[in-house]
Amino acid sequence: MSNPLADISTALTAHGLIPRGGFNFSAGEEAPTGLSNVPAKSVLLIGQAGSAPWPHFLRWHEKQPRHLKNPLDTWSREVIGAVAEEFGARAVSPSDRPFLPFQQWAMRVEGLKPSPLGILMHPEYGLWHAYRGALLFDHQIPIQAPENPIHLCDACIGKPCLNSCPVGAYSADGFAYETCLSHVRGPNGAPCRDTGCIARNACPYGTEYRYAAEVQAFHMKAFAGL
């Protein structure tokens, strides 16, 4: 008998994406609507580890209009939407309005905690992973409960992520968004623009999954609106 989750995983792998875990909504829990326009019974998060989707995205992007806005979001929606249609689910995205609680879902399904940079710290991938969307099902799906992973930030001495930002945008007080944005857009922001966030790259964990420089530059350009 076919295993739906294994089949979904196979379909996603063709695009460099992976299932990131899921859960069944409990009775009485508020849930977004599923495919049948009634509250969904379960959710399966879809994402990536490292730069695996990048070559798939690039091949798609080459065929799109030159000035397409938010191309990675558009690609993710198309790919995850097609998988949702194949497996009878509703696809949703982190950028959907009103926003869905993707970060809370992610912490719930993988037992992760935020790093000092706000990015969830993964025990294997470090900071080099992302959630690209989710599938909402009208029925419950077989889900394995997450383990309780070690939070690597607790074992990190010196917190290099907090000490390496050239403008001190990260601190115990939170993220100084405008300070970071001004720096990335400014004349001294080339290292961040071209090779990625210096603070994120200072993290010693999951380095084998670190995004390639061109991938980081793509994300920094989108962040800065350049």
Rank of each mutant, 00 (worst) to 15 (best):
N188L: 14
D7C: 08
H151K: 11
C197S: 03
L72S: 11
K69M: 12
R200E: 07
L226R: 15
R132N: 06
L68M: 13
A89Q: 09
E214D: 15
G158M: 08
L152Y: 05
R200C: 06
P114V: 11
E30M: 08
R97E: 14
Y205V: 03
A52N: 13
G126S: 04
F175K: 06
G34V: 06
N163E: 10
P123C: 04
P149A: 01
R200S: 10
W54T: 06
Y170C: 03
L181M: 06
H56P: 05
A222N: 14
L136N: 09
G126D: 02
F57N: 07
P39H: 07
H61T: 00
A202F: 06
D173K: 15
N3V: 06
E29S: 12
Y211I: 03
S2G: 00
T179I: 13
G174H: 10
K69W: 04
P19N: 08
M121G: 01
N148H: 12
H122V: 03
N3S: 13
G47C: 06
D73C: 02
A40D: 02
Q48Y: 10
H183S: 01
I150Y: 09
A213C: 07
G206E: 01
P53W: 11
E124N: 00
K41H: 10
G186F: 00
G189M: 03
L127Q: 09
V215Q: 15
S51W: 11
H151C: 07
E30I: 08
V43I: 11
D73V: 01
Y177R: 14
L45Q: 02
G47N: 02
R66E: 14
F175L: 09
Y211N: 03
K221Q: 15
A176S: 11
I18F: 05
C161N: 07
D194T: 12
I150E: 15
D96E: 07
Y177Q: 09
S26P: 00
G16S: 13
A91G: 00
V92D: 05
